[in-house]
Amino acid sequence: MHIMEGFLPPFWAVLWYVFALPIIAYGGYKVKRKIDEDPKSKSLLAVAGGFIFVLSALKIPSVTGSCSHPTGTGIAVILFGPAITAFLSAIVLLYQALLLAHGGLTTLGANTTSMGIIGPFVGWLVYKVVKGKIDVKVLTFIVAAISDWVTYIVTSFQLSLAFPSGVGFNGVLSSAVKFMAIFAITQIPLAIIEGIVAALLIGYLIQIREDVAEVVLV
C-alpha cells in the first residue's frame, strides 16, 4: 500500500518529488515519441497501463493478516522500460490520491519513486541480465514479482528514513526492519500472484501479436 497523505514530513515529501518528477516527465516524453514513431504501440501502452490500473486496485489478503495490493508494473517495464512505467504509474497514483484518498498528493513523489521508478527499475535490471537465457513467461514472472516486491522494500526505507527509531544509520535500520515486517512480508504472496498473472498475460499477448515476442526479447 502507498504511504498515506501527510505521513511523510515536508522535507522528505519534497525530496522524493524532486527525484521523481524529472523521470515522470521524461517518461511522458518517451510515451509521446513512442506513439509518434510507432502508432501500433498505442494499444500495447494501453494494455500495460490497464494492467497497472487493475492490479493496483485489488487489495488482496495476505499471510500476515493484513491486506495489500500488487503494483502491475511488470508488463510495462518489460515492454517499454522504466521511464514509461514511471509515467504510467504516476497516472494511476494520481487517480488513487485524488479519488480514493489512497496514497496522497504530498506522498505522490515518494509513492511514484517506489512503485513507478525504483521497483520496476530493479525488475528491468534483472530483465536485462536474464533475458534470452530463459523462457519469456518465466522471465516475466521473475521481473513482475521482483518489481512488485522491491516497490515495498523501497516504501519501507522511505518511511524509515523519515521515521528513524534512533540516531544515525542504526536508527534507520531498526525502523526499516519494523516497516519491512509490515510491507515486505505481506507482499511476498502478492508478488508471486502478480508474477503469475503477468506471465499469463505476456503469454497471451505473444499469441495474438507476434511483435510482442520481439519487443520482449530485443
Binding site: E5, K59, T106, F179
Partner: peptide, 21 residues
C-alpha cells in the same frame, strides 16, 4: 491495509507526529 499498519508503526516510533496534510 498495510498502510494502516504503517501508520500504527509511525505512531509507535514518533507518538508526536501529526500528518501535516
Amino acid at each position: 491495509g498495510t498502510d494502516e499498519k504503517a501508520k500504527q508503526a509511525i505512531n509507535e516510533i514518533d507518538p508526536h507526529y501529526k500528518p501535516w496534510f
